[in-house]
Design a protein around this nucleic acid. Structure first.
Lengths: 143, 143
DNA sequence: TTTAAATTGGACAAATGTGTCCGATTTAAA
DNA sequence: TTTAAATCGGACACATTTGTCCAATTTAAA
């Protein structure tokens, strides 16, 4: 479904939304430790998210990654997925047809459309903020 | 979602269900042409499906792949997915947690469970035979 | 029995995804 | 101004997936 990079990216953002709330910055090292991801690889992913302006990064001493509470309410899983995996999950045919459409449908076009719509609604309506709350409450986990 | 190999495998099976109806065998070459897949790669995939007894293969002249109509009614997308991609799509956590469960859930555990159930129901209830009918009627396409 | 048609299996090649290393750069603080 | 802490960026390494090639094997038919 999602690439490893995207999984790490989402977990990192959820962690940041929970810890960086008062404008505090969190280091790559801390992020990787808490989500149990390879640090150097996580670095690349956070760089990508920073370029896509999904998270703010600050270089130098006392630097790190920053995501204030109000911003995290406006960031949805879809934003992260697009920044890392692109829009293939929304655009690509379930059977890989190059041109799959209403007028040239693959055999599962209609049946899969409902599932795709559910996935998209899930990704576009679920905010990083909401997910971080359940982690902070100890009701869900990032590792 | 699915690997390329799995996409080819499903398309190949749908094509076979439509052409090999009267116990006729279809050559790898024909299959690959109709589903527009790389022939040698498709060979590997059909070999895997043959070993998993999802399709019958016959070597030698007048050989090929065979899938009679009654059998195709009992083969569901899930059978093909399991033979090629395994059960990860059913078993793996959306965020990649090694142990994601009701008692140690990831932040999207509940929300994604519904989607996963829909996907599984789609895969387990959709037969190769049903899909091949829409192709034969010219209502859907494999390329 | 020979030949042609077909799958099989193994080795290889290319592309992509995952992951590492390290020097360059930036910034805060001593 | 120097130093330490941090991200950035590029090159590299490894693993998996995708794809190719070809000799070996099997089978039907001439």
């Amino acid at each position: 479904m999602l690439s490893k990079a995207c999984e790490y990216g989402i977990k990192a953002m959820i962690y940041l939304a929970g810890t960086s709330q008062e404008g505090q910055r969190v280091s790559l090292n801390l992020v990787a430790q808490h989500i149990e991801s390879p640090e150097a690889f996580t670095s690349k992913i956070l760089q990508k998210l920073a370029k896509a302006k999904v998270v703010k990064s600050v270089k130098g001493a006392k630097g790190g990654f920053e995501l204030n509470g109000s911003t995290s309410k406006e960031i949805f899983l879809w934003d992260i997925v697009v920044a890392i995996d692109g829009t293939a999950i929304r655009d690509d045919c379930f059977l890989g047809l190059n041109y799959c459409s209403r007028s040239n449908p693959c055999p599962v076009h209609d049946k899969y459309e409902k599932i795709r719509d559910d996935i998209m609604s899930f990704l576009m309506k679920t905010s990083v903020h909401d997910l971080s709350l359940t982690v902070q409450e100890g009701k869900s986990f990032l590792s």
